[in-house]
Computed example of a mutant assay.
Amino acid sequence: MKLIITLLSIFSLSAIAPVQAAERYIDDNLFIYIHSGPSTQFRIMGSVNAGTPVDVKQWDKEAGFAQIEDDRGRVGWVDANYISETPPALTQLPLVQQELEETKQVLAEIEQSNNQVLLDKAHTIEEQGVQITNLIAEKDLLTQEIDTLKLSNETLQTRLNNQSEDVQMQWLIRGGAVLGAGIFLGLIIPFLPRRRKKDPHWT
């Protein structure tokens, strides 16, 4: 009988294993009760709110309880199912909301910056479009002026050619007239009567 009691005691002691102190958190329940021993049959010492950081002293795997020390310095046993290594969502929610707001702010700034860049590009494209339109209009105007100058040049060249032909014709006519007059005089002069000289022997 004593042997059985000794074996049960050893087994109970091995089931309650001390652990190195580590910070854990009470899970998402609103609160859990702290008991004086590793069971709900032990006296309730108080309660711990969700998200409270606690130090785990030891685990009773058989009973499913953990001995903890809360932020008020109380040492007692709680249901191990409500012990978590990460902060519960209830306590992380404000941080997540803050990060969400910061992310929204950054995205809004990026969007505003992108909109400004797009607006500047659109304005630049519009200005370039106006400049291109003006350059095309100037090119068309210069083309018209060049065509007008070409036409005027051709007209002047035609007049100059006509004047040159007129001058040549006038010179030809004048030369022909002079030549005709010379020929006429050459033909007429021999037939003109000459004055006879007085004979000195005549008295």
Rank of each mutant, 00 (worst) to 15 (best):
I32T: 10
A21M: 02
G37E: 02
A17S: 13
L30S: 14
L7V: 10
P38E: 03
I16T: 07
E62I: 03
A21H: 04
S39G: 05
V48G: 00
K57G: 11
Y33C: 14
I34F: 01
L3F: 11
V54P: 01
L8N: 06
Q58Y: 01
V56F: 01
D60I: 07
A50D: 07
S47M: 11
I44H: 02
S9E: 13
F42R: 04
Y33F: 13
T6E: 15
Q41V: 12
P53C: 04
S9P: 02
N29F: 09
W59G: 00
S12A: 14
D27E: 15
L7N: 04
L8E: 10
R43F: 11
V56Q: 03
T52G: 01
L3Q: 13
F31R: 06
Y33E: 14
D55T: 14
L13N: 12
V19S: 05
A15E: 08
Y33I: 08
L8G: 09
H35Y: 08
E23H: 02
K61N: 14
I32E: 01
N29S: 07
F42A: 15
F42P: 02
A15D: 08
Y33G: 06
V56Y: 02
Q20T: 15
A63T: 05
A22H: 04
D55Y: 11
I16F: 13
S47V: 13
Q58F: 05
M45E: 10
A50K: 04
S12N: 10
S12L: 13
M45F: 04
M45K: 03
H35A: 00
D27L: 06
S47Q: 10
V56P: 01
R43W: 07
F42Q: 09
S47R: 07
N49V: 11
A50C: 13
G64A: 06
I32S: 03
I16Y: 11
F31D: 12
V54A: 02
I32D: 04
F11K: 10
T40K: 11
E62D: 14
K57E: 13
A21K: 01
Y33P: 09
N29T: 15
Y33H: 09
P18Q: 14
L13V: 14
Y33A: 13
S14M: 12
Y33N: 12
I4S: 08
L30F: 15
I5K: 06
R24M: 12
G51E: 00
I16D: 08
A50F: 09
G37Y: 01
